[in-house]
Simulated scan of single mutants.
Amino acid sequence: KTLHRINRGHDFACYQRTTRLARQRGLKVCSHLIVGLPGEGEGECLATLERVVETGVDGIKLHPLHIVTGSTMAKAWQAGRLTGIALDAYTHAAGEMIRHTPPEVIYHRISASARRPTLLAPLWCENRWTGMVELDKYLNVHGAQGSALGNPWSVA
């Protein structure tokens, strides 16, 4: 639903077919997952993660939605119909996604940044370290990658 809502140009079945074909040819697959997309909360993020992992993925790049100048979402943000994700909401959702990710999946990115005037929201995304530091704190309290899957090696 979200892929259609954000006008991505493909559906999840297309992602699955492409991923399977790439893996059949011996290619490693790294998927980008965005936290804070319109209409999505933590539950949808975890459902997406589960489907991506089930499809077969070697790595994940995770980052918050950036609302940037010139985009369709920027128009919605300027009209007050869209807000950027708050740091605490990102930290909790991303932290839980990491905790629900099997240890063999490599995280290549857990935050991202953009600068004003390109970045409109959320402004905490001007410094990628802000998100990374908060995620580090969250995972130190709640458990490391895979800890929500019941793996005995994970710190709980």
Score class of each variant (00 low, 15 high):
residue 37 L to H: 02
residue 49 L to Q: 06
residue 123 L to W: 14
residue 43 G to K: 11
residue 155 V to E: 15
residue 72 T to L: 15
residue 112 A to D: 04
residue 116 R to Y: 14
residue 135 L to M: 05
residue 36 G to K: 03
residue 149 L to N: 10
residue 123 L to Y: 15
residue 102 P to N: 05
residue 13 A to D: 15
residue 22 A to Y: 07
residue 110 I to V: 15
residue 115 R to S: 13
residue 51 R to G: 06
residue 102 P to L: 04
residue 35 V to K: 00
residue 63 H to E: 13
residue 120 L to C: 03
residue 52 V to Q: 01
residue 66 H to T: 00
residue 78 Q to G: 10
residue 51 R to W: 05
residue 60 I to H: 07
residue 124 W to V: 01
residue 118 T to N: 11
residue 76 A to Y: 13
residue 36 G to H: 02
residue 18 T to W: 15
residue 85 I to K: 00
residue 86 A to E: 15
residue 115 R to C: 10
residue 75 K to F: 01
residue 138 Y to P: 00
residue 102 P to Q: 08
residue 54 E to I: 04
residue 107 Y to I: 09
residue 50 E to L: 11
residue 131 G to V: 04
residue 57 V to A: 12
residue 48 T to E: 10
residue 92 H to L: 10
residue 32 H to E: 08
residue 68 V to I: 09
residue 125 C to K: 02
residue 151 N to T: 03
residue 53 V to H: 09
residue 13 A to Y: 09
residue 139 L to T: 04
residue 65 L to S: 01
residue 155 V to W: 11
residue 133 V to R: 07
residue 31 S to I: 05
residue 78 Q to L: 15
residue 129 W to F: 14
residue 109 R to Q: 09
residue 72 T to W: 15
residue 59 G to S: 12
residue 18 T to P: 00
residue 9 G to N: 06
residue 3 L to D: 07
residue 137 K to A: 11
residue 53 V to Y: 07
residue 17 R to K: 13
residue 12 F to S: 00
residue 126 E to Q: 14
residue 63 H to M: 10
residue 64 P to I: 05
residue 32 H to N: 05
residue 105 V to S: 03
residue 147 S to C: 13
residue 52 V to P: 02
residue 81 R to G: 09
residue 10 H to S: 09
residue 86 A to H: 02
residue 14 C to G: 12
residue 64 P to N: 08
residue 54 E to M: 10
residue 144 A to L: 13
residue 38 P to T: 00
residue 141 V to S: 13
residue 71 S to D: 13
residue 39 G to Q: 08
residue 45 C to Y: 03
residue 109 R to G: 06
residue 81 R to Q: 10
residue 20 R to F: 13
residue 156 A to P: 12
residue 52 V to S: 04
residue 41 G to F: 07
